[in-house]
Design a protein around this nucleic acid. Structure first.
Lengths: 114, 114
DNA sequence: CCTCAGGTACGATGCAAGTCATACCTGAGA
DNA sequence: TCTCAGGTATGACTTGCATCGTACCTGAGG
């Protein structure tokens, strides 16, 4: 079973406004920071992010990220997979993922470096 | 008269969340796109952006941009000046202004290229 | 069939934020 | 002094959005 890949806007059709609105929320940004930091772009489970919100709210957040064009959602019927659209995002907004990746490093640095 | 430069957060203290929230609004983003596109970083007047909102709302938006650390506000008492904090923003979020500049080019392209 | 876990759809709620009206301040110029 | 234009402070209104409760769907396993 490969699952049904669900991708909303084409690579060129990504809108900066929608992307920035999506990234304005701390929970969604946390998801994107994790995804950007994983250079392997492995598929992630929805509950692998430990978001401190209900599953309905998680559905909402992942939907916003997908509609902004930042992630793919792979539907297995029972389960769901999340994958970063690294190539498309990098093509349309070069440097954006680097900013998120830098934020990941900064968070790690704070945790250990005081 | 040099005016009173008002700068809120230090360069290293800029928060990604505040910046993205500031850029999430279309009006504020329009201002930042214009500022990023002007490589001369000339000082701008507040009403040089033709924002379709009242002056009170403009005061609000410029305040948000300043508190996010994206611009300086120069107070002449009577008048006010706006200037992009290009060096600080570029240091803390390298590539961010390039994204906004690209958006400016894209808008121009749409206007002429159909 | 059933149960169970993960996910979605719809509706309601509460808070944050954009917007404007009123009133007031500031400096330039008559 | 007065007038005028630009800007700010406060309060009220309205919209947007994050959140959750209820109900329902889906596939796995008993």
């Amino acid at each position: 079973m490969t699952g049904t890949h669900r991708t909303d806007p084409e690579a060129d059709a990504l809108e900066l406004g929608a992307v920035l609105r999506a990234l304005a929320d701390a929970h969604r940004r946390a998801v994107m920071v994790e995804l950007a930091a994983d250079r392997g772009d492995s598929e992630r489970g929805c509950n692998s992010f430990d978001l401190p919100v209900s599953k309905q709210t998680q559905t909402h957040h992942f939907r916003v990220l997908r509609e902004a064009g930042l992630i793919d959602e792979i539907d297995y019927g029972n389960r769901k997979g999340i994958r970063l659209r690294r190539a498309d995002v990098e093509k349309r907004f070069p440097g954006l993922l680097a900013l998120l990746e830098a934020e990941s490093a900064r968070q790690s640095g704070r945790a250990t470096g005081g």
